[in-house]
């Protein structure tokens, strides 16, 4: 009996080690310890064993049973390990490139625009939007630009035929013509007409000038404007905002300076220079970055704000120009060609 049990264990050891799949394992298990298994059959012979031998034999059988179970467990573990390996496949070569496209990239003008908007949001400005097709009133008249002003000339501004109709762009009068806005200042007017002050908006957007396309000019380009209307807004507040914007954008050492200038919709008006020593590809001490001023009382009167009560400032700049300065880009056309070798440099 003992010899039989030893042989059973030895055979099981060999057989189980050769098992590769779960069905094989289940079959082998049944063969050994199942209801009709070899060990079970041996156990059933216990009755025929003399009573005094039974404890020793019982112990032997239990030991055998334990050893078989151990063998079975180990066989199952190795099958599970084999299955896992099959499921996992071969080891990866971590140095191979991913065949998937990516990552995506933001356009540099988006990056600059969003950065400016973030900076301005921190000081209470919200981002406004308005139509790119405008009427003469919103683009010019409301901004105190007289009918004979050169900026309104068909030589500089894109107009639509008098018959053109835009279903969702409102006109002030039926006679005025539609045009492509020459600046985002029209958003100021539409915002002010929507409700009373206080107002703090930043309006980035596309603008259009009838101009030759070259390294620094483009038929459409982007501007970003700020408008603040409140009580007791001063020239000093305007300067503080510009100092804040450019120190945030370019570092604390950045300075701005104002030079008197003329815009029809602000009084006084200024051009804004930026200390430029730390900018790439700039060899001047100061460079012009935008225009600004205190909102002209005529503009306030036109939108129904009392100029005696409200005051405000406006600031505007070209986004392409800013991006060109920040990144050292020397040709505006890159922004509209979308060569991926260009786009991938910034995001």
């Amino acid at each position: 009996m003992q010899a039989t049990l030893t042989a059973l264990v030895a055979k099981a050891q060999t057989d189980l080690a050769a098992l590769k799949t779960r069905p094989e394992f289940e079959a082998a298990k049944a063969r050994l310890v199942g209801p009709n298994g070899e060990l079970t059959l041996l156990m059933k012979q216990m009755g025929a064993v003399p009573k005094e031998d039974r404890p020793a034999l019982g112990k032997l059988i239990n030991e055998t049973k334990g050893r078989l179970q151990g063998l079975l467990d180990s066989a199952l573990r190795s099958i599970a390990a084999r299955e896992l390996q099959a499921q996992l496949g071969p080891e990866v070569d971590p140095t191979l490139p991913s065949p998937d496209a990516g990552p995506g990239t933001y356009h540099p003008l988006t990056l600059v625009r969003e950065e400016m908007c973030r900076i301005l949001r921190k000081v209470g400005f919200i981002v406004a939007d308005g139509p790119e097709v405008e009427s003469e009133y919103y683009c010019f008249d409301a901004l105190n630009t007289p009918a004979d002003h050169p900026a309104r000339d068909a030589q500089d501004t894109f107009y639509f035929p008098e018959t053109a109709r835009f279903g969702n762009v409102s006109k002030k009068t039926p006679e005025e013509k539609y045009l492509l806005r020459t600046h985002t200042s029209s958003v100021q007017i539409r915002t002010m007409l929507k409700g009373p002050p206080p107002i703090r908006i930043v309006s980035p957007g596309r603008t259009y000038r009838r101009d030759t396309t070259d390294a620094t000019h483009s038929a459409n380009f982007h501007q970003l404007e700020c408008l603040c209307v409140d009580k007791n807004v001063t020239v000093r507040d305007l300067k503080a905002l510009l100092d804040y914007i450019f120190a945030s954008l370019l570092g604390r050492e950045t300075k701005t300076r104002f030079r008197p200038h003329y815009f029809s919709y602000t009084e006084p008006s200024f051009e804004v220079d930026l200390s430029a020593k730390h900018l790439p590809k700039v060899r001047k001490e100061w460079i012009e970055i935008g225009g600004c001023g205190m909102v002209d009382p005529v503009v306030f009167a036109g939108v129904g704000y009392d100029p005696e009560v409200w005051s405000g400032y406006a600031f505007g700049m070209g986004l392409e120009r800013l991006a060109m300065l920040l990144y050292g880009i020397d040709d505006i056309r890159h922004f509209y060609q979308n060569d991926l070798r260009f786009l991938k440099q910034f995001a």
Binding site: P103, G104, T105, V127, A219, F335, Y336
Partner: peptide, 30 residues
Amino acid sequence: ADDDPVVLFNRRATDYLVGHDFHECLNYTL
């Protein structure tokens, strides 16, 4: 007050598409 809905839409759409491996372009309107 909050940013204009158009601004929010553009921002979300760009974030989504760039997040899905698109390269954002700008082309002429005309």
